Amino acid sequence: MAKVIIVFASMSGNTEELSDAIAEGVKAAGLEPVVKNVMDTEASQLEQYDAIIIGAYTWGDGELPDEMLDYYEAMDGLDLNGKQAAVFGSGDSAYDIFCGAVDTLEQKLKDRGAAIAADSIKVELNPTNEETEQCRALGRRLAELAAASV
């Protein structure tokens, strides 16, 4: 059976809410996702999954949040070739770089060989109903791609 992991960093709960909606989509597609706060997992575990979905809020002017930094750096040694991947996150457009952490994480996944299987989801603070549904659709898509790859 295909394996899907969702790893997230959330300070205010917005990005965690997005990860919950993505997990609902994965479940709707018939798979049981593993959902982990970035503080409770190791980057090396990503190699064990067929689909990888990573989310983070953006800190300051487009930066990764502090709790994501070690995880991000630990991704450097990974081989993610053949993995389906997507990124999501929340941010505040009052800053010059909106959701810059999403772009940074997506590039890292590409650099490690993962195939970006869906457009990134960037949310202004709290998700709207439409954005929540986009997250569910993202989860379904990644689950379907993961299932097709095994």
Rank of each mutant, 00 (worst) to 15 (best):
M1W: 02
A2V: 01
A2I: 01
K3T: 07
V4A: 11
V4P: 05
V4E: 12
I5W: 04
I6V: 15
I6C: 09
V7L: 01
F8G: 09
F8H: 14
A9Q: 12
T15Y: 02
T15C: 09
L18A: 13
S19W: 04
A21K: 13
I22V: 14
I22Y: 04
E24P: 02
E24F: 00
A28K: 14
A28F: 01
A29E: 09
A29Y: 01
A29S: 11
L31W: 02
P33C: 11
V34M: 09
V35Y: 07
K36C: 13
N37S: 14
N37E: 13
V38C: 10
M39S: 14
T41C: 14
E42H: 10
Q45R: 10
Q45S: 14
L46V: 06
E47Q: 13
E47I: 09
Q48D: 15
Y49E: 13
A51Q: 08
I53Q: 08
I54A: 07
I54M: 08
I54W: 03
D61E: 14
G62S: 07
E63L: 04
E63Y: 00
E63S: 12
L64M: 09
L64Q: 10
D66I: 01
D66K: 01
E67D: 15
E67K: 04
E67Q: 13
L69N: 10
D70K: 12
D70I: 02
Y71P: 01
Y71L: 03
A74K: 10
M75P: 01
M75D: 10
L78E: 07
L78T: 06
D79I: 00
G82Y: 10
G82D: 09
Q84Y: 13
Q84S: 11
A85Y: 00
A86K: 02
A86D: 07
G89W: 05
G91I: 03
D92V: 06
S93I: 00
S93W: 05
Y95N: 09
Y95V: 02
D96C: 02
D96L: 10
I97Q: 09
F98Y: 13
G100L: 03
G100W: 01
G100D: 01
A101G: 06
V102M: 08
D103G: 00
T104A: 11
T104F: 01
T104E: 13
L105I: 15
L105V: 06
E106R: 07
E106C: 05
E106F: 01
K108D: 12
K108C: 07
K108R: 14
R112H: 05
A114E: 06
A115C: 04
I116Y: 02
A118P: 00
A118S: 12
A118C: 02
D119C: 00
S120A: 14
S120P: 09
S120W: 04
K122I: 00
K122P: 03
V123K: 01
L125Q: 12
L125P: 02
L125M: 13
P127L: 06
T128M: 10
E131G: 04
E131W: 00
E131C: 05
T132Y: 03
T132D: 03
Q134T: 11
R136N: 03
A137Q: 15
G139E: 07
R140Q: 15
R140L: 03
R141Q: 15
R141Y: 02
L142W: 08
L142K: 08
A143L: 05
L145R: 14
A146K: 08
A146F: 07
A147L: 15
A147P: 01
A148C: 11
S149Q: 13
V150D: 13
V150C: 12
V150Q: 15
